[in-house]
Design a binder for these strands. Structure first.
Lengths: 204, 204, 204, 204
DNA sequence: TATGAATGAGCCTTCATTCAT
DNA sequence: AATGAATGAAGGCTCATTCAT
């Protein structure tokens, strides 16, 4: 049993380290970020970081979890808006695109750790989970709308989210390396909406 | 006068190193692959690797180039087949999906280096170029078909490839972390074909 | 609140490294002394040396500074004695010769780094400074005596130190490679005194 | 027995390597000059250098010998001029100063290798020998003049050269790190002449 | 709870040297 | 007589980790 007061202070520091880690990883990438970099960014000593986290591996894993949480939370918010179905869908897609386009440091970290996860099984699981949750939101919404409207998808409904979310992810990837003009970007997203609607048989 | 082929041994060794690098990078990732690992995989000494490549950076850059070349070459082959438009399109999409699904070590290396490229400008350029070429193939094919058939796309034609290639890339990403069942996979690809045709106004 | 002297251990280690470096450099020379050699001589790990000094270059520069400081301090002491001018001059010359003849490891290090300074601009400045300070002591003393006695030098007074100190340095150089017998050495130094006096117009 | 023709070509290459070594060593110093640097400067491969010289050590030793030879030869020339004693002495001192001031690459190499010789016994011997020969020239001349004129030195004659040559060497050392103005330089040399004459009891 | 000090393994790179050709 | 290829031992340096305080 640890006294509560002591715990609280520690908890604050812990979070400080996590935040610093996100910042540092976003800026320089996993391969170029040392524990010391993170400690400095957090305004602490290396020793302190190791006091809060068993190892770098542990820290990274928790960073991933935090970033994934932030991502899924934001995705959830995108769908949990009120409104007329068509509009709601459109808004959600736009928001999910915005997340990917302007995504703060967390997104960069996720992208970076994705590569790590290719080889590090410990990271793969939470990564996979994040993807699942991300699509999960969409799934829920879709089944709800389908039920509501008695519509039928051209594609098995549980695969719709994969198509949409994957397309968004792929577009974000290309966007990073080869950005579209603003006008083109607008048209691509519009097209994505159209496609979604058509898959979904919603009359526009 | 140097005997013909005096450089052959060197060239062979160079390629051996490159291949070993691809293997090693694919297996353990950039951050966990040392020059020594590569040397051992190539059956040489560390010194020999540095004899053929100025630095690790240089080696990595050349690995990237090679992987990108292999990728684009394969993509080119996917589109440069003969046949009736509809069938050709379908076949090309399938081949591009296969590339991503079963993609050998080169694909893993590319994925890994993509994360590096997020922070390393030297890698970003060739990466971006690969993406451009990859879409380029599709663009050419599409304009050709559109001309041929007098069809009009619902989306500006130069953006079609981005949608399709990006969707494939995104699907591959999700597939890696959360594989579909074979049946589902088949349906997703089928859906992708349908979408493509519909964007394209080809009656199925 | 950091307990008093928390840095003491570090400072002590730092000095230990510097001392070890002087010893090692004196024995094997710059080109043949690795950071590891120094670490071992200091009873530490290579890492510890790099903990205290940013780089080998940094360490060497500080070694130079320390040796130069020790040298100039000793030279200062040689002139800052009390006594009758003639005797004081004689004593100072003898002491400066002794410094050069029996000069401990610091002198060897300085000699070694002099060669480095030929090519490394970073070392040249402190080296030049040491020479200047070394002559500076003599200059001060000479002007003082000249004023005191109303004498006039046959050579512009500010050049006297250069002649004397340079002669001492040159003699030390030759002495190292080709030592004189004790008797000859005594006579050479005596001659140097004589010359100095004669330049100075002090009747002996 | 090696055929003569073959030998000649080899001899030329050997000299080429030695020259290149002098150039390279003069520019970057012993510690920073690799066998490869020398090979490149000589327009050959590393292997070729090792064909002509057993080891780097061997090469360096021969470089030293060559530089020392060039130095002593030039010194000899300085004294072997004709003329009236006083003028001859003056001219020789000036020439020896010029050697030290403007000394080409060989001088820099000697300075550099002097530091090496502090720790490497194999270099010490030839170095010591060079110094001896350098002073030897002066000794010979002095005894000759003394005999000729029936003069007596204030200092044992065999020590005169040491004083003069050492002074010149010391002055050159200081000059390198802290150059005099042209006017001051002139006065210092003039002073050195005066001192020499006075030691020598030649009326000016 | 946090720090400064220290470690030791490992990294990228350089280099003298060897050797088949 | 000379080269290109390769080696292996160091070398300087970084870094995750440990620990006394």
């Amino acid at each position: 049993m640890r006294p509560r007061g002591a715990y609280k202070k520690s908890e604050a520091s812990r979070r400080q380290v996590l935040e610093a880690a996100v910042t540092a990883l976003a800026e320089h990438g996993f391969a170029q970020t040392s524990v010391n970099d993170i400690a400095v960014a957090a305004g602490m000593s290396k020793g302190a970081v190791h006091y809060h986290f068993e190892s770098k591996e542990d820290l990274i894993a928790q960073v991933l979890e935090q970033c994934a949480a932030m991502m899924t939370e934001r995705a959830r918010a995108a769908w949990n808006t009120e409104g007329e179905p068509r509009e709601k869908l459109r808004a959600a897609i736009r928001e999910m695109w915005t997340m990917r386009r302007q995504g703060g440091p967390e997104l960069r970290v996720l992208a970076d750790l994705m590569a790590q996860a290719l080889h590090d099984p410990k990271l793969k699981k939470p990564m996979a989970n994040m993807f699942r949750v991300l699509r999960g939101e969409v799934v829920e919404y879709f089944s709800q709308v389908l039920d509501e409207l008695g519509l039928q998808s051209k594609v098995p409904p549980h695969l719709l989210p994969r198509l949409i979310v994957a397309a968004l992810d792929g577009l974000a990837l290309h966007e990073f390396f080869d950005p579209l003009t603003d006008a083109d970007e607008e048209q691509v997203i519009a097209a994505l909406e159209t496609i979604t609607f058509s898959l979904f048989d919603i009359e526009e």
